[in-house]
């Protein structure tokens, strides 16, 4: 099967055109919009990237993790520590971060699968590891503890384009995360159409039947946990160098783990484009709410005593709950059907 068939074979002509248009639009975006919108788009792409990593584990291999911030945090802290304290460029730091995250993913996966901890209990195991790590980092002096870990920023580096050290302008970060998100999409698509993907989906639907067909269920589940953890760690490196500061609560907190599950669940668990689409719906939705509330306040419709901080997440929570109730399979499969972007199974080769 050619690489083209594996990556794009499912798409109709219309689907291909939509994808191509989407990519062109994203590439051109920074020159079309304000820097504020470009920053929002960077965050959207970041969440889309993480969403795909997480989705690999739940949607494809059937393992619910609510502690993925652990892997993101490992990538972020490992690369930031090596860069800020030892001057190791993130291009190397990412290797360390990914290696540690993969090992952590392997450990949690090993414990979970060997002790046959399923469903919600596995989810709680992932939370427990993430929270445990958060408190440990709180107390790790060499990582800055609760005071945080900061990356050196100079005025010059704000405008540069130093990919090796990940010091540069917002545009550089935008294109970097765009490339990462597209690469993640291609990687997931490639895995999914190969042997591994067939085995993962079989295990998700029925582990006993998969095993009877010769699938080494334990091994393939471990692959899913490790690949997902490794991808999340890459996202963590991006996070560290984009924001330049790390605090345990903000990096490892359960809010972060929940945040990164939202885009894939809203977009559609188990679909490849769902996490990207979900991110593109949710983040702008949040920004819109903020803008709306600020407008209401300046126009005097609501009083100053209302704490604006809470309004955006309030509407956001209500919007997400509504999506779960109205489109429980996610929004993307529904849109995909409506617009005819994907071939029915009978037309695929």
């Amino acid at each position: 099967m050619s690489l083209y068939t594996r990556l794009l074979g499912d798409l109709t002509g219309r689907g291909l055109a939509a994808l191509a248009g989407f990519v062109v639009l994203l590439v051109a975006l920074p020159s079309l919009v304000s820097s504020y919108i470009a920053t929002v788009a960077t965050i959207v792409l970041y969440l889309a990237f993480l969403g795909q990593a997480w989705n690999l584990m739940l949607g494809i291999a059937g393992l619910l993790s609510i502690g993925h911030a652990l892997f993101v945090g490992i990538g972020a802290y490992a690369s930031a520590y090596l860069f800020a304290i030892h001057g190791v460029p993130p291009l190397l730091g990412v290797l360390a971060g990914v290696a540690i995250a993969v090992a952590a993913g392997a450990l949690i996966g090993y414990l979970g699968f060997r002790f046959a901890i399923g469903g919600v209990y596995f989810a709680l195991l992932t939370i427990a590891f993430a929270e445990f790590t958060r408190i440990m980092v709180d107390h790790a002096k060499f990582l800055g503890g609760t005071e945080g870990l900061f990356l050196p920023v100079s005025a010059a580096s704000r405008h540069g384009f130093d990919l090796l050290n990940l010091r540069g302008s917002p545009e550089m970060f935008y294109y970097l995360i765009l490339a990462l998100a597209l690469a993640a999409l291609a990687l997931c698509r490639w895995l999914l159409t190969g042997r591994t993907g067939y085995y993962w989906r079989a295990i998700r639907d029925n582990p006993a039947a998969a095993q009877a067909l010769g699938v080494d269920v334990f091994r393939y589940r471990m692959y899913a946990a490790m690949i997902s953890a490794g991808m999340a760690a890459v996202g963590g490196v991006f996070y560290a160098f984009f924001y330049n500061n790390l605090f345990p609560e903000q990096v490892f907190g359960i809010e972060r783990s929940i945040e990164l599950t939202l885009a894939p669940i809203v977009g559609g668990v188990g679909t490849l484009f769902g996490p990207i689409f979900g991110a593109f719906v949710l983040t702008p939705l949040g920004e819109l709410f903020t803008a709306g509330v600020e407008w209401l306040q300046t126009s005097g419709a609501i009083g100053r005593h209302v704490k604006v901080d809470g309004v955006k997440p309030l509407f956001w929570g209500i919007a997400v709950a509504a999506i779960v109730l109205l489109r429980p399979r996610g929004i993307w499969p529904w849109i995909c059907d409506r617009l005819g972007l994907v071939k029915p199974p009978s037309e695929r080769s």
Partner: peptide, 30 residues
């Protein structure tokens, strides 16, 4: 609300309750 997601997978129930939780915290914050 919750009755309507009883038949859905674990992660959907989790998301619904997480969303409700976010809304409630935000309400308190406001």
């Amino acid at each position: 609300v919750i009755r309507r997601v009883a038949h859905l997978a674990d992660h959907m129930q989790f998301l619904l309750l997480a969303a409700i939780a976010i809304a409630m915290v935000s309400g308190c914050l406001i």
